[in-house]
Computed example of a mutant assay.
Amino acid sequence: MLIYEYKLDGSKAQFAAIEEAIRTTQFIRNTCLRLWMDARGVSRNDLQRYCAVLARQFPFALSLNSQARQAAADRAWAAISRFYEHCRLKIPGKKGYPQFQRDCRSVEYKTTGWKLEADGIHIRFTDGCGIGRLRLIGSRDIMTFPLSQIKRVRLLRRADGYSCQFAVAATRRVEHQPSGKQVGIDLGLRAFFTDSEGNTVAPPQYLRKAERRLKQLHRRLSKTQKRSANRKKARQALSKAYLKVQRQREDVARKQANALVSSHDLIAYEALQIRHLVKNRHLAKSISDAAWGRFLWWVRYYGTLHQVPVIGVEPAYTSQNCSRCGQRVKKSLSMRTHLCPGCGLLLDRDHNAALNILHKALQGTVGQTGTDEGVSSNASGQPAATRRRTAAPRKQAG
């Protein structure tokens, strides 16, 4: 599944109609969830049929396209089925009991309720919400695909305006050029990552760079009166600033992952439990700013496209063991150099760890795998997790 996204150009009345459709989607989703809470044995099919009942009871629900109502019910069932799955697997901690949604930001149409015009830059919504004809702003031509391949159209609200996503049933094929290189990478804070060849990538630190501006916007928001127009403007400005940081992180993670996978035939990485590392209050902000999880997500994704093995290994003692003789050399986090008293090896700490990671992967000491387990494509066109990961020993950042 490929996702094409365009900015939307329309009038205030059209954007207000989109907001009404989004609120209707939230209402249907929450009402279906209430039905599941109140009755026993409710199935996905029951929720789908309940949408017709809601359309007869509420005129505003009837104005929304029937398949869009069913997509809203599917959102409720997705939360329910995820809860069932967590209970079945006996995942420790909270199981994610479905909650009512308060911040719905999108509405999904399937194959009806919309019409793409012949020029390829306008889309018309034909249901009773009154959205009408909108102009698509983007560089890619959606008309290169047959209409039968467009399986879903989603309208969503972002901090910088409204967008339209097309989900196209197509397979992306990439021909990988073998390089004969195998690499291990060690994620860190002083360097974004260090590979087994000694190369380093500087950390982007977009949140750190934007902190001064974000603090100003937070102060401005705190000084406004609740439910006032100025407060709404301040919230909008703050949301745009955070959205910019998010997109910057996504861009650098994607580009670095693509470059890494394109130039190697095997990639080994540490299977870090990032959710445990961010509990360290001294390093949490830096770890989140580095966006390790997003970077590894894209590495696994591109590894699937290029059919390159992406192997995760347990991080235990990768920074402590000598990559030449295997002797364990205890180090504190502040010690950035590895000096082995046994064989005399002198290396940067992260370079030594990257070599150990590669050795572990080649020896078959695998804690988890990326492409070996398979990466599937979810509704957003991005790979989804395919297996619950086993807990790995915690490691100090850096």
Rank of each mutant, 00 (worst) to 15 (best):
S332V: 00
K181C: 03
E211K: 14
E175S: 09
L156V: 04
P203A: 14
Y109K: 11
T111M: 05
S319Q: 02
Q182I: 03
A257S: 12
L243T: 06
H282E: 07
S63M: 12
S139G: 05
S63L: 14
G180Y: 07
N258Q: 12
K151S: 15
G113C: 10
G10H: 04
E5P: 00
Y109D: 05
L8S: 02
K255I: 03
L207N: 06
P178L: 12
T31C: 01
P178F: 13
R88Y: 12
A397N: 02
R220C: 10
I22R: 03
A73E: 02
D9M: 07
P393T: 07
A210G: 03
E197M: 12
I3C: 15
T25K: 02
L54M: 14
G303Q: 03
D195K: 06
E197I: 02
L345Y: 05
E20C: 09
K223M: 09
E175H: 10
Q363K: 12
A202M: 11
Y317C: 04
E20V: 07
I131G: 00
N199F: 07
C104E: 06
A271P: 00
Q205D: 10
G138M: 02
R49N: 11
L362V: 10
A259F: 03
D9K: 14
K240R: 15
R394C: 12
G342S: 14
G184N: 05
N65L: 04
I28G: 00
Y302R: 07
A169C: 11
R389Y: 05
H86V: 05
D74K: 08
R157W: 09
G374D: 10
N321G: 02
A241K: 01
Y84L: 07
P178W: 13
W77P: 00
A16H: 09
M1D: 05
I357Q: 00
Q320N: 03
A291V: 08
E20K: 15
C325Q: 05
P315W: 03
D119M: 09
S380Q: 10
L333E: 08
L147H: 11
I123G: 00
A55S: 12
L47P: 01
R102G: 15
Y50K: 06
R231K: 11
R173Y: 08
A361Y: 01
A167R: 09
I142P: 01
A170Y: 08
R124T: 15
L116C: 07
H359S: 14
V183D: 01
Y84M: 08
I267F: 03
S106Q: 11
R275W: 03
Q57K: 13
A202S: 15
Q177Y: 01
L136V: 01
Q57V: 02
G188E: 07
L136K: 04
R56I: 01
G130E: 04
N352P: 07
H86A: 13
L221E: 05
G374Y: 11
R154E: 15
G120N: 09
V168Q: 08
N65K: 04
F27H: 08
P146T: 13
E211A: 12
S332L: 05
Q363L: 08
V310T: 15
R152Q: 14
N280K: 02
A259G: 12
K226Q: 13
L54C: 06
R158K: 14
G161N: 09
Q101P: 00
R220S: 14
A229K: 13
A268S: 04
R220P: 01
V366F: 13
L243S: 14
Y206N: 10
F295N: 00
W36K: 15
S323P: 11
D141T: 15
